[in-house]
């Protein structure tokens, strides 16, 4: 109980990942969907750092760095697209983005 092992961190990461998944599935506003995506990426980062620590290997931390870089660029491009969509249609709800459904 008092000794924190690798499994503790993996369980925490899984809990956070499922919170993010629930957010992705029940949100309709696209900005909220982006927040849930950030939660998903962060939970994976925790497990990368934990595995890196408990195996004495730095590769996990390297992957966490690249995940952070990808998350930053995803936010920049995604928010730009979202602003363009909002200027054109005046809302950012997912249900209105079904013009390509056919």
């Amino acid at each position: 109980m008092m000794e924190i092992g690798l499994n503790h961190y993996l369980v925490l990461s899984t809990i956070l990942f499922s919170i993010g998944l629930v957010g992705v599935m029940r949100r309709k506003n696209l900005l909220m969907l982006f927040f849930a995506t950030e939660i998903l990426l962060n939970s994976v980062n925790i497990s990368f750092a934990a595995i890196s620590h408990y195996y004495g290997d730095l590769t996990g931390q390297m992957f966490a760095f690249f995940v952070i870089a990808i998350a930053a660029s995803e936010v920049a491009v995604g928010l730009g697209l979202l602003i363009v969509w909002h200027k054109k249609h005046n809302n950012i709800d997912l249900d209105n983005m079904s013009t390509m459904r056919g």
Binding site: A72, S73, E74, A76, V77, L79, G80, L81, I83, V84
Partner: peptide
């Protein structure tokens, strides 16, 4: 990503 953000927004 920076260039895309500037151009889009």
């Amino acid at each position: 990503a920076m260039v895309a953000g500037i151009v889009l927004a």
